[in-house]
Design a protein around this nucleic acid. Structure first.
Ligand SMILES: NC(=O)c1ccc[n+]([C@@H]2O[C@H](COP(=O)([O-])OP(=O)(O)OC[C@H]3O[C@@H](n4cnc5c(N)ncnc54)[C@H](O)[C@@H]3O)[C@@H](O)[C@H]2O)c1
Ligand SMILES: NC(=O)c1ccc[n+]([C@@H]2O[C@H](COP(=O)([O-])OP(=O)(O)OC[C@H]3O[C@@H](n4cnc5c(N)ncnc54)[C@H](O)[C@@H]3O)[C@@H](O)[C@H]2O)c1
Lengths: 229, 229
DNA sequence: CCGAGTTCGTGAATGTGTGCACAAGCGCGT
DNA sequence: ACGCGCTTGTGCACACATTCACGAACTCGG
């Protein structure tokens, strides 16, 4: 219990752990154990993958029985660093920034909105999701006083790099970028990008392939990203 | 020109093509050629990767010169199926659904919002981004009359499977899911999921690792998803 | 206490993605 | 016409991810 092997966890596994965690958290309270196969079904993946993923955290299952849900939740949360909350600051209080700030799902999963900033005087002072919109000049102060290490960029593309620079300058070390722009940041800052138009374009690609049945295989079901009944 | 090799394109490449396309589209008009290295820099990836990605589309570059931007844009658009628009229907006109409908970036990139539906009488009839919100009962009619093949699920998690079933029943074959739920759909329907809380949790994981310097390597810069200066 | 049935943990095989390194091809200047 | 410098396209080696298959370890009933 006290020792932590702290082995390296593959990135692909890290990307699935939050999904397992969500599913486990939503399970009925009277279900105290779950098998890799049950969890796999709920997550839409292969059972062997679930076992391998969980094995990176340690040997927390019991053969012939499965995994104890409460304990597994605890272990996954610990591994993901969710033993404490990670306050988040949102830059840009437009359509998307407001939707994000209003979204209860963030605080529920350990990411309270510690601040929202904008440059538009019309937006500053308004309250969204219980948080008052501040001027972007106050960003650094907010980040430092609230010990924020994660920033969300929800500005127009032209302002995204500026926003990122501000965040990095204030000490933020992780950025979630919604603007369709490639951000330049120091190597020790993590950036993840969510581009909704890209998602649609990927769907469009497969959609198009579907309608022009290739000479070889008629339907190459893309098992990678698609969940099936 | 008339022949189309129609080779299989790796999924990883498909996921990068939209980004290349966006960058190419935003280039100065007076730049008529671009090298793989320049494009790689702009996209924050390796030049060899750009060349390999583009080589799946065909040999559209010229050695010693680079790629002709206009022609490359055309080819990438063709490959992604963007020779025509893909109308999209949004289910759920809440915070997120409204932000999406208001977002000009979709229609700009070939995905006009053909309809928005909801169950809430208070929302039905209002106009968002130039589109009137309809009752969810009209979904099938809308999908058929506007030839929609892509649906966006922006309902609360509890209603997401219902929304997906409705979409599939109406003939939609690609779904972009924003609800934190695993959707069950027939095997021939593509689903992509965007879970913003998952993105934050992944950042949180790396954030935590950062603060507990592992015994082995102090900072394992995650090159996979992070763009760096 | 034993055997049947269950489920985990993981080695090994296979599949997919990345990046180096270099030959082949092109343009340009002389 | 030719050589030189530049850039593409790709073979190859390596890294990473997925899946299978099976031994190990557990439960339970008799
Ligand atoms: N709305 C969507 O559904 C959607 C979908 C995909 C991507 N996006 C992207 O998300 C970003 C935000 O989209 P949106 O629809 O909310 O745009 P928006 O125009 O509604 O909001 C942008 C906000 O950023 C503020 N801003 C501008 N410059 C700033 C700066 N330097 N510092 C701080 N704030 C600044 C503006 O005042 C505005 O309030 C854009 O990059 C957009 O491309 C939005
Ligand atoms: N708002 C965000 O920033 C955000 C971020 C991440 C994920 N999400 C997810 O996106 C989804 C939507 O979030 P939101 O903030 O817009 O929620 P919301 O509650 O503001 O909006 C949901 C809308 O869906 C409608 N709806 C409910 N049942 C429906 C049905 N059966 N058919 C059609 N419409 C129905 C509701 O009337 C409401 O208008 C949720 O699943 C949420 O978890 C939202």
């Amino acid at each position: 219990m006290s020792d932590r092997p702290r082995r390296r966890i593959p990135e692909a596994t890290v990307e699935r752990l939050p999904e397992y965690l969500r599913i486990l958290s939503e399970l009925d309270d009277d279900l105290d154990h779950i098998s890799s196969e049950q969890l796999a079904d709920l997550a839409g993946v292969n059972a062997a993958k679930v076992r391998k993923d969980l094995s990176y955290l340690g040997s927390y299952g019991t053969r012939g029985v499965g995994y104890e849900v409460a304990y597994l939740v605890f272990q996954v949360r610990r591994e993901l660093g969710l033993t404490h909350d990670w306050p988040v600051i949102i830059v840009g209080a437009g359509n998307l920034g407001q939707a994000l700030a209003n979204y209860a799902g963030f605080v529920d999963r350990g990411f309270p909105v510690a601040g929202i900033v904008d440059v538009d005087p019309a937006k500053i002072g308004s309250v969204i999701g219980g948080v008052r919109v501040r001027h972007v000049d106050e960003l650094a102060t907010l980040v430092r006083s609230r010990k924020v290490s994660i920033g969300v960029v929800a500005t127009p593309p032209g302002a995204a790099q500026d926003a990122a620079d501000l965040l990095v300058g204030a000490g933020v070390t992780s950025i979630l970028n919604f603007a369709p722009t490639v951000l330049s940041v120091p190597r020790d800052v993590s950036v993840r990008k969510v581009d909704l138009a890209v998602e649609l374009q990927i769907l469009g690609f497969h959609e198009q392939r579907r309608s022009v049945p290739s000479l070889s295989i008629v339907l190459d079901a893309d098992s990678s990203r698609t969940a099936s009944a």
